[in-house]
Design a protein around this nucleic acid. Structure first.
Lengths: 152, 152
DNA sequence: CATTCATTACAAAAAAAATTGTAAGGACTG
DNA sequence: CAGTCCTTACAATTTTTTTTGTAATGAATG
């Protein structure tokens, strides 16, 4: 269990960010503990500090690894896997965007185009017009996406 | 129940957008039906077309109204409430950002500042440094937010 | 001003998601 | 190469979220 009030609040802060991004609460908790910890931690450490199951800790760590939020660390004399915060947040942002956000946006864009075409051929014109408005917004959003890509 | 295959796919498209934004599936479905429909629809129309409950239709319509995705419409000779698509998507984007995204970001920013200060006074320096990195990213993200606000 | 029609509030049920427990799989150690 | 330590895969459970049903509230109609 986390020690001080401030530490608990730091964890709560990361839980909120995680859930806001669509991740489970436990992932935010794990990231919070690693954010606080100077040294690398193992899955068992997380079990001890958060009172979650061993499997949950393992899965959460893997998920955080995949999005570039943490990175593997070696601790001499132990065969466990250890992890520490990825303090280069650029990597996290980049992986998040590339792995979760951009693919989804692109898939939606493809579907929109397919649907718009189908409607323009066989469907009523008011729907075609609505898809055209959507398309225009896609154009407006492009600069934002470009800026985001530049960030990462 | 929706008629053609394309119509079902349009609804599925909006369901995916809705769930991606953290809204329930039913809200995406309702928006999809309204996107397809040229004329305003009542809650009962949605019940008929989607096979959802009357209460669900009512709650969904209210939620869509709140985020500016649809707008009230009047139909002569009926006391029901009718709604139609808000075709000015700018209004939708604006309300979504103002009602959901920006407040959350601001609240997180406040909490981050509070925590950073608490740590800088009583906490270990490595955490302070991590908050400082976070702060720098907040600065980097600012132009993106500005662009978003300009959009809306 | 009573009646009807429709919306909304809230508790109950259903569905979905997350968490856990157990068992199987691999790799290091002696 | 047998034993131990750790990770991971997957089914079962728990928890959370969403949907529904019912009852109460409010507004328009005659």
């Amino acid at each position: 269990m986390p020690a001080t009030e401030t530490e608990r609040e730091i964890i709560a802060y990361w839980v909120e960010i995680a859930t806001g991004l669509g991740f489970p609460r436990s992932i935010g908790e794990i990231y919070g503990v690693l954010f606080i910890s100077k040294d690398p931690l193992s899955a068992d450490d997380l079990v001890g500090q958060l009172g979650i199951s061993r499997s949950g800790a393992g899965q959460g760590l893997r998920a955080l690894l995949e999005i570039g939020a943490i990175r593997p660390a070696h601790v001499l004399g132990s065969r466990k896997e250890y992890f520490q915060l990825q303090t280069d947040l650029g990597i996290l942002v980049k992986q998040l965007l590339n792995a979760r956000i951009f693919p989804k946006l692109e898939e939606l864009s493809r579907r929109r185009q397919t649907l718009a075409q189908a409607v323009s051929q066989h469907g009523p014109s008011h729907i075609t017009q609505r898809f055209e408005k959507l398309e225009r917004w896609h154009g407006k959003a492009a600069p934002v996406l470009k800026l985001l890509k530049a960030l990462a």
